[in-house]
Design a protein around this nucleic acid. Structure first.
Lengths: 213, 213
DNA sequence: TAGATTGTTAATCGATTAACAATC
DNA sequence: TAGATTGTTAATCGATTAACAATC
């Protein structure tokens, strides 16, 4: 099923960008686009766009361009967001709650199937139509749900432990918000989102600019 | 003040990772590390680590290694997180609230100086010791605060407008959580954090794995 | 057909890694 | 001094971009 052996990570990230852009175009009833249109509107080089797509086959018509809704459907299929995916969230603090209620999850075919926490004060509480479950029941619960995607919104000191549990429960990819480098088996894919790291990089860029008033 | 003309973005991102790791080491009273230690514990190649530092000067002693607390202090200074920085947050929804109360902001020397929203129901409410202000007062308020960092947690359709206002108010770097590509003057630096994009990339990786049970 | 735009190959660019002389 | 580890140069690797024949 996986005809492309080595797709660069930046290509995958851009694919998600294209998809978002195509959804907007589709909503605006645009039917056809060219790679040059994409460059104008997203800033991503036209050759880059064509190259990115080329990892997965042929998508356009020379002299014409790309059919928006067809391209959208095909990229969605490549990213496996053409059918609903169950996702579990561990850590129901502020961030966890925000993610559970994040707008757009549904459209992207992600379904938060369960939320866990270890804090007795949070367990049992309702969070966006979801009862927060005891973290220790993660394995048991996921045996039913079968989620292969987990989102970790726990503190750094709990993250490794929770990751281990999630992996044991069948999770194969992890979106990690905890500021720690997780040690996981090679088959498991982890992506880290670090709010403070992003701010730090931005902070660096304050220096090179012209002095403020 | 900016002796290094062209530091690669990946280097800056890793710098923030090193810093976090060094803070941990310091807390564990480790005094000295070698680049090989860094590789073992973070997975980042030892040569990469040394190369990254080399953009900013000399930090270690041949045959000995790096002094943890000194290195920590110097990286913090490079990233300008050695002194408190005011930050404004626009959009006080779930995500905005989560970020305002995010643990670690203080340690990283970021201070959320004001939060804004355009929803009358949110304006005036208390959010982590902060009164949510009317978005339309952003310019006026930031004239006093002088924040050069803004975090955007508004919906996609409001993001460009808010970004324009923030830039007009003196903001020079933006952390954008809205799923949209902002058009900004060249001098302004934007970093995008896209939760759904991260999930999409992870979702892709589910295919290449061994079949589930 | 002529004009436009694709998919792909080749050229360029930049980042990572290995190797090693310098040095503590 | 001998052993360890740095900072940096050179080699490798991979990603981006330009160019163009194929084709609608």
């Amino acid at each position: 099923m996986n005809s492309s052996p080595k797709v660069p990570m930046p290509t995958l990230e851009r694919l998600a960008t294209y998809l978002r852009y195509l959804i907007d175009l589709d909503a605006s009833h645009v039917e056809t686009i060219s790679s040059t249109d994409v460059e104008r509107q997203t800033g991503i080089n036209a050759a880059q766009f064509r190259k990115d797509l080329s990892y997965f086959g042929e998508f356009g018509k020379p002299g014409v361009g790309y059919n928006v809704s067809e391209l959208q459907a095909r990229i969605a299929r490549i990213l496996k967001i053409d059918q609903m995916q169950p996702v579990i969230v561990v850590g129901a603090g502020n961030l966890g709650s925000a993610l559970i209620g994040y707008p757009g999850l549904q459209e992207h075919k992600f379904h938060i199937a369960a939320a866990f926490d270890r804090d007795p004060a949070k367990i049992g509480r309702l969070q966006n139509d979801l009862v927060v479950l005891d973290e220790s029941s993660l394995g048991e619960v996921n045996a039913k749900i079968g989620a292969r995607i987990a989102i970790l919104c726990v503190p750094a000191n709990a993250a490794q432990h929770v990751a281990n549990d999630a992996i044991a429960a069948g999770v194969r990819v992890i979106l990690n918000f905890a500021p720690i480098i997780l040690k996981v088996p090679e088959r498991v894919v982890v992506r880290n989102v670090s709010f403070l790291q992003e701010l730090a990089v931005l902070s660096y860029h304050l220096s090179s600019e012209a002095p403020a008033t």
